[in-house]
């Protein structure tokens, strides 16, 4: 059974780990969550990133949300920033693509070229 008491325990565990976190050499995943993104299915994509980052213990990854990224027709749009601040923009990202992006890009360091905004735009 879930309870707030459980959260206290999770807090203690997180507090002991947080000093070891090297946020600055990590990745930042940003999901566009404006009306256009939400309608296209951005919400389960954001949830899937959160789930998989936690499940795979990826301590150097932050998942966050932002408003409209300006590509309303190609939503859901996801931006991945690496530690150096280099941005990769993915378009038409669905739940099934989340694992590929995490495994190939965030863990493996290789951009998933076929899902990038440029490639998807060029194909249209």
């Amino acid at each position: 059974m879930k309870s707030l008491a459980e959260l206290k325990k999770i807090r203690e565990e997180a507090a002991s780990k947080i000093n070891l976190r090297t946020a600055k050499d990590g990745y930042r995943v940003v999901v566009g969550m404006a009306t256009c993104g939400i309608t296209a299915g951005a919400r389960p994509v954001l949830a899937a990133f959160v789930d998989q980052v936690a499940a795979k213990n990826l301590d150097n990854v932050t998942v966050t949300q932002v408003g409209c990224l300006g590509e309303c027709a190609l939503e859901p749009v996801v931006e991945v920033f690496d530690a150096q601040g280099n941005r990769t923009t993915y378009a038409e990202v669905h739940v099934a693509d989340v694992e590929t992006i995490i495994e190939q890009h965030i863990i493996g360091g290789n951009v998933v070229t076929e899902k990038t905004l440029e490639v998807i735009k060029a194909a249209k």
Binding site: R11, A14, V50, V53
Partner: peptide, 14 residues
């Protein structure tokens, strides 16, 4: 309850 630990900490989010 979190006393400064962010809501966006992965274990907290889960």
């Amino acid at each position: 309850i979190l006393e400064g630990i962010p809501l966006t900490e992965p274990s907290v989010m889960s």
